[in-house]
Design a protein around this nucleic acid. Structure first.
Length: 115
DNA sequence: AATTTGACGAAGC
DNA sequence: GGCTTCGCCAAAT
């Protein structure tokens, strides 16, 4: 498994209940600014294997990105059950619920650079 | 080996 | 807000 995949999984697993992240946000946090589609691939193929909170990942517009009607419904239900408000167009206020992930190691590095 | 395919995203009308 | 167009990139075909 490559570093990007590994880190993406780590990040996704860390998303707290009641919050969300976007595909692009995860890709950037994992070190690949243009890797949003790879995040999609990871969620699609590894959610069940690594027990990922896949429903907490949405697109940058605040929409449920998944196409399949059944899974789409499941995702909306799970998010609502965590207290996330979803409007009549199945959209979410991203700025309100976004989880601001930060890399502990990177913060250490930045801190050391100050000296 | 070449082309298509996405649970994407930003930009431009 | 809806709709294109473009850039992206690994996996599937």
């Amino acid at each position: 498994m490559n570093p990007f995949t590994k880190k993406s999984i780590e990040i996704i697993k860390s998303i707290p209940e009641g919050t969300i992240m976007t595909y692009g946000q995860i890709a950037r946090a994992a070190g690949s600014p243009r890797g949003a589609r790879q995040v999609v691939r990871i969620l699609h193929s590894m959610s069940h294997v690594y027990d990922l909170p896949w429903h907490r990942v949405i697109n940058a517009k605040g929409e449920i990105a998944i196409n399949d009607d059944e899974s789409h419904f499941v995702q909306v239900s799970l998010l609502k059950s965590e207290g996330i408000e979803i409007d009549e167009h199945d959209r979410i206020n991203v700025s309100r619920y976004r989880y601001e992930w930060h890399d502990t190691n990177k913060i250490e590095t930045d801190f050391m650079d100050l000296k």
